[in-house]
Amino acid sequence: MKPGNQDSRRQHGWTGWLFASPWVVGFLALIVYPFAASLYWSFCRYDLLSPPEFVGVENYARLSHEFVQGGRFGQAVWNTCYYAVVSVPLSIALGIGLAVLLSARIRGRAVFRTVFFLPTVIPVVATSVLWLWLLDPQSGFVNHALSWFGVPPQNWFKGVGEAAWPLHWGTESGGFGSKDALVLMSLWGVGNFMVIYMAALGDIPKTLYEAATLDGAGPARRFRHVTLPLLSPVIFFNLVMGMIQSVQAFTQVYIVSEGRGEPAGASLMLSLHLFLSAFQNLEMGYASAMAWILFVILLTATAVLFRTSRHWVHYQGER
């Protein structure tokens, strides 16, 4: 670096911090302080009415007990994992599918794109009302449409079924339940992912496909060996962001489950359980401990994804 550059690096010192000051204040007040406070409170009994009282690891012990015994917390962990593990891969697959379908030059492409994207701009409150009605077990349109294909009525938001869990297949709990309904809702909002994949597909050089065709690769092999590797950075991005978002899903969960995780706790996600523990039961310490466990789980999962990404994510320009 030239010495002149060194000087200019310093020239805006105070001005730089001054311009950045809104964020600095926000970072200290809304992130650093809350993280410190919630870490401390997670070792306290704190009901807002009296000052926090230090109780050591009591909250964490209670959480691990509930996890092992299948209490509310254990149920919430299972529900959250189920929702994330089912909805994220399906959303990615559907997003890629739609983007590939729309990648050809066909008439009405813009119209199709709008139709697929439109659900993502509908406010979540409205989406939840809409799907509560469409998925009503008695009079909902979806069960009606399923009956045309001979599918028996499903309980959706009113049921505890977990259709994606193989152990339930063929049993009472094998039908579509409340979490499956939430997954369906999330799939309806797949337009964001689709748009990102469309942009990424547009960036793949045409010459790669031509070269693959010359080498005798059919459409399936071109997809497997050209499209997928070149999309892998975006898939990875959506995997990480999708996981973080699905774990944080709150509004739709709150609305469809009557704000309580109904029925029978089948829709009780971690974020809802945490909210209810804090603001309904006034167990701030217990809720803070739960928040930290959730944070650590998310960090670990992100780190694991980053580690595995070395083996399957291909960045163009490397190698």
Binding site: Y33, F35, V247, Q248, A291, L294, F295
Partner: peptide
């Protein structure tokens, strides 16, 4: 951007 809102929710509310 990667931080979940859960951890900051309670202190932020009280603040």
């Amino acid at each position: 951007m990667l931080l979940p809102w859960h951890v900051t929710m309670i202190p932020r509310f009280l603040l």
